[in-house]
Amino acid sequence: MATVVGAITVSHVPAIGGAIAKGLQNDPYWKPFFDGFPPVREWLARVRPDVAVVVYNDHGLNFFLDKMPTFAIGAAAEYRNADEGWGIPVVPPFQGDPALSWHLIESLVAEEFDLVTCQEMVVDHAFTLPMALFWPDQKWPVRTVPVVVNTVQAPLPSAARCYKLGQALGRAIASWPTNERVVVIGTGGLSHQLDGERAGFINKDFDLRFIDSLVNDPTWATKYSTVELVELAGTQGVELLNWLVARGALPGKVRQRHVNYHIPVSNTASGLLLLEPVTTEGAV
């Protein structure tokens, strides 16, 4: 059966794409952010996952408000990036894994997670930038399955529901009859707010508590309503729902392999966390 080899959760601020394009990785503003990634790249090179399931929120590239799914999943052979309006370079296409996508769809719908299924899908910066941070040569060594969570238009799925989706996703991966190694990636957050008089809101105490909870007490954040999460983490900080899905996919106890937290990237407190299941056989 397939194995979830780990979960990586990371911020996905568009400005990262601009910094990559301009080669600013060693610029004093950006260095503390980019310096977080080598340990994750080394882990990926060692563990060599075959597939990445990427949990993120679309920002108005694939989905408009005419049809806004609460949860959606890609089932395409290929996913392309496209212009989002601010001129960050488009990255090379990603190979999909339709067989795994349909296995996940069968398993998740059987567990009463009724996702929208997408045989055509473009992927935005929330999908592409984490991939470009993990594999800077942009020669993607993994097949991919995008999972999209609505963090855009309230009502959002609850934190508890997102965590349970992650658990169901983990079970679905574990029942895939192959020997494939799957990494689950959750993107977005941490605390930030782009809009309103409260723009610029960052909550370091909450972010650090949230990161810590994912290691030892993963349902901690599920006690909050999504409006409470907006209050604690900001209107876009609520993207941490994607982190909860990714964390939920890891069964049992986890080990923190790496963490980085930096304020600010653009208007955002950036976070990076790599978790591994304690029981992973063949972990190196």
Binding site: Q153, A154, D195, G196, R198, A199, V227, V230, T235
Partner: peptide, 13 residues
């Protein structure tokens, strides 16, 4: 309910 914040809900949408 959050000061300085308009939550983008059905009414706003």
């Amino acid at each position: 309910p959050v000061p300085g914040t308009v939550i983008f809900d059905g009414e706003q949408a």
